[in-house]
């Protein structure tokens, strides 16, 4: 088991390195750097001005060396200008003495996530703050999505082919066919607009960042939860129907155990093994939903900074965003593998 986790962690690390390098490569292509220079400097810069701006701010040089600096395995760049020394590890132009004391390496290995050109702030503070907002959103999504999906799945799978099964299955197909930007728009139209006149909820979740209430937070949560719910419910249903045809269920029924007890005591635990994996593997999709819903409801969380960072080619923020999301994806995969072994004693990793 220990060896398995170790090997998986190695693969995770390799994946994260490859992915960040791909992000790094794409964001550091020259047209992207040119756009960055022009938004940071001014839009009418000549080609020479762009080149000198890039060099002065440490965007010159080869891709590999810049990536090494970001990782913290190569010494950070320094430049000497008339205002003093500037460099990756220094804040603005500083005198020679301060420059001499600044650390040589400052990458993520040293815990320095860099500086965001879009928000003019340290990347680590931005990420921590926004991730908290999204964490709250995700928590309520899971609280709403997982129990309701499991209940729907179990109810549908309990008696295959019944009217309950048919209607619940169709409902779950309907939710999987409704991407967040469609269901979100429909919810906003029905529940918040003055045209329909229901006005039960608020159409934006901006105020929910400080003061989440049912009124301003329920619609974003529901929108994300619905899309994932159908899929988990269908998986639970498939697993439940399979369990209900198993020999031991038939034995229990022949013994005269009540249907109620068969479902709750004999079938349920075995039927919930497969959905556990599915729920864990849903996290990457939830991340997508978060980006769409945060844009739609103007909730400034992790998804919102992804859009902002990508739109403004904010390289270091974007890299931090991808590190975090890759980490979430890979850790949930690992948890799903390990949890599967614990839930299902028939499987042993060897």
């Amino acid at each position: 088991m220990g060896l398995f986790i170790l090997r998986r962690s190695g693969v995770m690390l390799l994946t994260a390195l490859c992915l960040t390098f791909i992000v790094f490569f794409l964001t550091n292509l020259y047209p992207n750097l040119e756009k960055l220079a022009k938004t940071q400097g001014n839009f009418r810069m000549s080609d020479e001005a762009v080149a000198s701006w890039l060099d002065a701010n440490g965007y010159g040089g080869s891709m590999v060396s810049k990536y090494g600096q970001w990782l913290g395995v190569l010494p950070g760049w320094t430049r000497e200008t008339e205002k003093g020394f500037t460099g990756r590890c220094m804040n603005g132009p500083v005198s020679a003495e301060v420059a001499a004391e600044a650390p040589t390496f400052c990458g993520i290995l040293q815990g320095d996530w860099g500086y965001s050109t879009r928000f003019k702030d340290d990347v680590s503070t931005i990420i921590a703050e926004r991730l908290g907002n999204t964490g709250r959103l995700m928590f309520w999504v899971l609280v709403l999505m997982v129990p309701s999906a499991l209940i729907i799945g179990v109810l549908a799978g309990m008696r295959e082919g019944s009217v309950t099964d048919r209607s619940l299955s169709t409902a779950s197909i309907l939710t999987t066919a409704t991407p967040e930007y469609v269901s979100g728009v429909i919810f906003i139209a029905v529940f918040t607009s003055s045209t329909v006149g229901l006005k039960w909820f608020k159409g934006t979740a901006t105020s929910a960042m400080d003061n989440p209430t049912f009124e301003n937070f329920f619609l974003p949560v529901l929108t994300i939860a619905l899309y994932g719910m159908g899929y988990i419910a269908r998986m639970t249903r498939a697993s439940m129907t399979e369990v209900m045809t198993a020999q031991y269920i038939r034995t229990a029924r022949l013994k005269g155990v009540s249907f109620h007890n068969i479902v709750l005591k004999h079938a349920l635990r075995n039927a919930l093994i497969a959905p556990f994996t599915v729920i864990m593997l849903q996290f990457p999709w939830l991340l997508n939903g978060v980006v769409i819903v945060e844009t739609l409801f103007n909730y400034k969380g992790f998804g919102w900074i992804l859009v902002e960072a990508a739109g403004n080619n904010d390289i270091e923020l974007l890299l931090a965003v991808s590190v975090v999301s890759v980490f979430v994806v890979l850790v949930t995969q690992l948890i799903s593998d390990i949890g599967y072994v614990y839930l299902n004693p028939r499987i042993r990793i060897s």
Partner: peptide, 11 residues
């Protein structure tokens, strides 16, 4: 598959 789809599209 580990890439968030929207990040990939934005890139």
């Amino acid at each position: 598959l580990a890439f968030p789809v929207i990040l990939l599209f934005y890139l």
